[in-house]
């Protein structure tokens, strides 16, 4: 039933990275609480982890009902999909929130189709209007936004990071905890190997300052120059898709529609033309500084401060200047 006045509960798919809840989970809980206020339902959270601290954090951040996996954990898409679909069916959840990252983007369509619901991915906001869940999507390579009304529940929504402030923690909140058992027999694939990037320095998603390079760097050696500035500033280093596709840097450094979404206080874009594909991942930064040799580069339309010039001359001078100020 959709478009009716019955109360509707929201399920957040929590993510655990290195034994801790990922930042996106707290953003999803904040959105879920707002949706639940409008739809009159409760907030549930499913987590593939059996640490008590994880459950406590989820409840403190707004979840009323936790479903946690008590047997050993799995990353298999079939196993996770089956557990989520079962939890939705058993508890009549009508909206499902995933983070829009590799984890969520992989699982969300499977869950939507198997639950016979509907889906809006890549959303930067969500609402409940006229009895329907609605998502505002980033589309056309970041050039446009589409508002999509989901006419069939469960309404599955993947949300871009930075779409909401993280939920406030209230350790006095109470919630129900229900253990679930994942069924490993449904797996149709096998994980052979998993390589984690050796992330030197800061994580892109949480850094206050990010400096990123694109095609204009001219080659992989340009990233060495960026790293020297990053060290001085305490910044993380990112890249445009072109720079990643050219093999100049690791794909996990990619910022943009198919990479990471970041919201630093300061974003310094070096030799990046500013295609909407890229800006979709960084346009929400508080201050954007663009350095580019081409005065007509579209990046200057999104930047607060622009410098037309050669980064090879500029960046070493910037390092010198910072050193002077700090001394």
């Amino acid at each position: 039933m959709t478009g009716d006045t019955k109360s509707k509960s929201i399920l957040v798919i929590a993510e655990v990275v290195d034994k801790a809840l990922a930042p996106i989970t707290f953003e999803l809980l904040s959105l879920a609480s707002k949706l639940a206020e409008q739809s009159g339902g409760q907030v549930g959270a499913i987590v593939f982890d059996n640490q008590e601290t994880t459950r406590r954090a989820l409840i403190a951040a707004g979840a009323d009902h936790i479903f946690y996996q008590e047997n050993e954990s799995s990353v298999d898409a079939d196993v996770l999909t089956a557990a989520i679909v079962q939890t939705i069916a058993n508890n009549a959840f009508e909206a499902i929130l995933f983070g829009h990252n590799a984890f969520g983007s992989d699982l969300a369509p499977r869950v939507a189709f198997r639950s016979s619901g509907s889906i809006a991915t890549n959303c930067e906001s969500t609402s409940f209007e006229g009895g329907y869940f609605v998502g505002k999507r980033v589309c056309y390579g970041g050039k446009a936004r589409g508002i999509v009304r989901l006419r069939k529940n469960p309404a599955v929504i993947t949300v871009r990071s930075g779409s909401a402030a993280p939920a406030e923690q209230d350790s006095g909140r109470a919630g129900v905890e229900t253990p679930i058992k994942a069924d490993f027999s449904v797996a149709r694939s096998q994980l052979v190997d998993r390589q984690s990037e050796d992330l030197r320095g800061l994580r892109l998603e949480t850094a206050k300052i990010v400096i990123a390079g694109g095609r204009g760097l001219g080659g992989p050696e340009g990233f060495k120059v960026l790293e020297s500035v990053a060290q001085k500033l305490g910044a993380a280093v990112g890249a445009s898709r072109v720079a990643c596709d050219l093999g100049w840097c690791s794909p996990s450094m990619q910022i943009g529609l198919t990479g990471k979404t970041i919201i630093p206080d300061l974003y310094i874009a070096v030799g990046i033309s500013g295609a909407s594909q890229h800006m979709a991942g960084c346009a929400a930064a508080r201050t954007i500084v663009a350095i580019n040799t081409d005065p007509d580069a579209p990046i200057f339309m999104d930047a607060n401060i622009g410098i037309v010039g050669d980064y090879k001359e500029l960046l070493p001078k910037i390092v010198e200047e910072i050193g002077r100020l700090n001394s």
Binding site: A120, I147, V148, R151, A290, D302, N304, G306
Partner: peptide
């Protein structure tokens, strides 16, 4: 999935 509105977001920044 019903697309109820498609639009180009306005840029308000001044460089």
């Amino acid at each position: 999935e019903e697309l109820i509105k498609l639009f180009i977001p306005k840029k308000e920044k001044h460089c």
